[in-house]
């Protein structure tokens, strides 16, 4: 038996919705955020509408049952039911959306807030637009020295950073569980791989309290490393972060 077009369209929508939930929530075990899923479904619905109505024949088949429901005298009963149930359904939906709950309001964290033009740390003012890692040049000039610097950076990391950011730099250090927001995962392509070293220098030296307002509420537990590390140590640890993860900092030259 051929499934009616309207039912097909509904099945497609339900199927896609179920598919998203199944794939993300069950199979991959990484829930799909409802805000995102709603938008996804809106556009899936738009796409479905397009496919089912771009030609007359198909549109006819979609519209006919709806038209019949509204106009056909023989369907009075079902019409009355639908006309009662549908408003109730939307009413309920709206109520569910709007009713006050104990859920804390959504918090949005901008992971990479825009850096200031200059930052004042270590008693000096650094221009973040032109600041470069003084040790980066050794990568080409003197690889041995560079390796040494990376090792020193690694030592700094192990002594200071790994408790939260993890010994694999994946943000899963021993203390990570206790923190919200969780420590940054440097292995993720969306973090240090997207940034310049000056940006890291800024974030490390001024820590959570140094975040601009747009990245707040800053519950970030990142210490102000300016108070604990030297400038040199920060630059070395930055070398280490990139070296270990295999990423390169975003560079000035757009080659």
């Amino acid at each position: 038996m051929k499934i009616p077009r309207l039912l097909q369209a509904v099945l497609v929508l339900v199927g896609v919705y179920g598919g998203f939930v199944l794939v993300f929530d069950v199979i991959l075990e990484q829930v799909i955020p409802s805000s995102l899923l709603n938008m996804y479904m809106f556009f899936v619905a738009a796409g479905t509408y397009m496919v089912f109505t771009f030609n007359e024949e198909s549109t006819e088949q979609i519209v006919a049952p709806i038209k019949a429901l509204v106009e056909d005298p023989s369907r009075k009963k079902i019409r009355n039911v639908v006309f009662v149930v549908l408003p109730l359904f939307f009413g309920l939906f709206t109520y569910q959306q709007m009713k006050p709950s104990f859920e804390a309001p959504l918090e949005l964290r901008t992971i990479h807030p825009a850096p200031p033009a200059a930052v004042k740390v270590f008693g000096k003012r650094y221009n973040l637009l032109t600041l470069v890692n003084p040790y980066r040049k050794f990568e080409k000039e003197d690889p041995e020295k560079f390796d040494e610097l990376v090792n020193e950076g690694g030592a700094v990391y192990i002594k200071n950073c790994q408790y939260c950011h993890g010994d694999k730099l994946d943000g899963k250090g021993p203390y990570a569980q206790g923190l919200n927001p969780v420590p940054l995962n440097f292995q993720d392509v969306g973090t240090i791989a997207q940034l310049q070293e000056a940006y890291l220098f800024w974030r490390i030296s001024t820590g959570g309290p140094g975040l601009p307002k747009e990245a707040t509420p800053w519950l970030s537990a990142m210490p102000v490393w300016e108070d604990f590390l030297t400038e040199d140590e920060i630059w070395k640890v930055i070398l280490f972060l990139y070296d270990y993860t295999g990423y390169s900092p975003r560079s000035w030259e757009h080659e």
Partner: peptide
Amino acid sequence: GIPRIEPA
């Protein structure tokens, strides 16, 4: 539809 952010 998107988070309401008040720019600094």
